Amino acid sequence: MTQAEADSTLPKFVPDWEDEPCPQPMLPSASPERRAGLTEGVRMRENPAEWAFVRLSKLIEDFEKGLDRDEEIAAHLVGGPGDATMQIEDVGFWGPDFIMFTGKNADGRPIRLIQHYAQINVLLNARKKPEEREARRIGFQLSELVEKTNPK
């Protein structure tokens, strides 16, 4: 086996999803069209952190669709100190196991949360944007990244 073949071989504990479509979320109050929209064009990923990131980015984008123009996404980090609310500026992953959130805390100071994909608990909420700028939307940026890395 060449090094290239060894590098492309999945570890035994990772399933090979090939063209397996993304399962739809179970949201009883959501219409079938909304559930399908969350998974449109998304394929399952072998990397667990990337797979968690893909679904999280779709949920963020869906949540942002319901925000007023003066609101932007924030998160309450379940299990964090104090109210543990952060303004989310970016979400990423470092496979195979980390999900990363960057943003600002309630005092406007930069913060980064590094979370294991199996322990992620994030309560998305809305917060008023600062008066001096338009509300920022990150969902579409995350979706562009998901599209670029989507298995063919």
Rank of each mutant, 00 (worst) to 15 (best):
residue 51 W to M: 02
residue 51 W to Q: 08
residue 52 A to L: 06
residue 52 A to G: 06
residue 52 A to I: 06
residue 55 R to E: 06
residue 55 R to M: 07
residue 56 L to Y: 07
residue 57 S to E: 04
residue 57 S to I: 05
residue 57 S to T: 07
residue 58 K to Y: 08
residue 58 K to S: 12
residue 58 K to H: 14
residue 58 K to E: 14
residue 59 L to R: 04
residue 59 L to V: 02
residue 59 L to W: 00
residue 59 L to G: 00
residue 60 I to E: 01
residue 61 E to N: 14
residue 61 E to H: 15
residue 61 E to G: 15
residue 62 D to I: 03
residue 62 D to T: 01
residue 63 F to D: 02
residue 63 F to I: 06
residue 63 F to W: 00
residue 64 E to W: 05
residue 64 E to I: 13
residue 64 E to A: 09
residue 64 E to M: 15
residue 64 E to R: 11
residue 64 E to C: 12
residue 65 K to F: 02
residue 66 G to Y: 00
residue 66 G to V: 04
residue 66 G to K: 06
residue 66 G to F: 04
residue 67 L to P: 15
residue 67 L to W: 12
residue 68 D to Y: 05
residue 68 D to R: 10
residue 69 R to C: 13
residue 69 R to W: 12
residue 70 D to I: 09
residue 70 D to C: 11
residue 70 D to V: 04
residue 70 D to K: 10
residue 71 E to D: 13
residue 71 E to N: 10
residue 72 E to M: 07
residue 73 I to Q: 07
residue 73 I to N: 05
residue 74 A to D: 09
residue 74 A to K: 10
residue 75 A to L: 03
residue 75 A to K: 00
residue 75 A to E: 05
residue 75 A to C: 08
residue 77 L to P: 08
residue 77 L to G: 03
residue 77 L to F: 06
residue 78 V to G: 04
residue 78 V to C: 01
residue 78 V to Y: 00
residue 79 G to R: 05
residue 79 G to A: 09
residue 80 G to K: 00
residue 81 P to A: 04
residue 81 P to D: 07
residue 81 P to H: 02
residue 81 P to E: 12
residue 81 P to R: 03
residue 82 G to M: 09
residue 83 D to H: 08
residue 84 A to R: 06
residue 84 A to V: 07
residue 84 A to Y: 05
residue 85 T to A: 11
residue 85 T to F: 09
residue 87 Q to C: 08
residue 87 Q to L: 11
residue 88 I to H: 02
residue 88 I to N: 01
residue 89 E to K: 11
residue 89 E to G: 14
residue 90 D to G: 10
residue 90 D to K: 06
residue 90 D to L: 04
residue 92 G to P: 05
residue 93 F to P: 10
residue 93 F to D: 09
residue 93 F to I: 07
residue 94 W to H: 11
residue 94 W to V: 13
residue 94 W to Q: 14
residue 94 W to K: 08
residue 94 W to E: 14
residue 95 G to K: 08
residue 95 G to I: 10
residue 96 P to M: 09
residue 96 P to D: 15
residue 96 P to E: 15
residue 96 P to Y: 12
residue 97 D to L: 01
residue 97 D to Q: 11
residue 98 F to P: 02
residue 99 I to T: 02
residue 100 M to T: 15
residue 100 M to E: 08
residue 101 F to H: 03
residue 101 F to L: 13
residue 101 F to R: 00
residue 101 F to N: 04
residue 102 T to P: 00
residue 102 T to Q: 12
residue 102 T to S: 13
residue 102 T to H: 07
residue 103 G to C: 06
residue 103 G to I: 13
residue 103 G to W: 03
residue 103 G to H: 08
residue 104 K to G: 03
residue 104 K to H: 07
residue 104 K to L: 14
residue 104 K to W: 03
residue 108 G to W: 10
residue 109 R to T: 08
residue 110 P to Q: 04
residue 111 I to G: 10
residue 111 I to V: 15
residue 112 R to V: 15
residue 112 R to L: 12
residue 113 L to A: 12
residue 113 L to S: 11
residue 114 I to G: 10
residue 114 I to L: 12
residue 114 I to V: 15
residue 116 H to R: 11
residue 117 Y to M: 06
residue 117 Y to R: 10
residue 118 A to E: 11
residue 119 Q to I: 00
residue 120 I to Q: 04
residue 120 I to H: 03
residue 120 I to D: 04
residue 121 N to Q: 12
residue 121 N to Y: 03
residue 121 N to C: 06
residue 122 V to C: 00
residue 122 V to T: 02
residue 123 L to C: 14
residue 123 L to I: 04
residue 124 L to Y: 02
residue 124 L to Q: 09
residue 125 N to T: 06
residue 125 N to D: 06
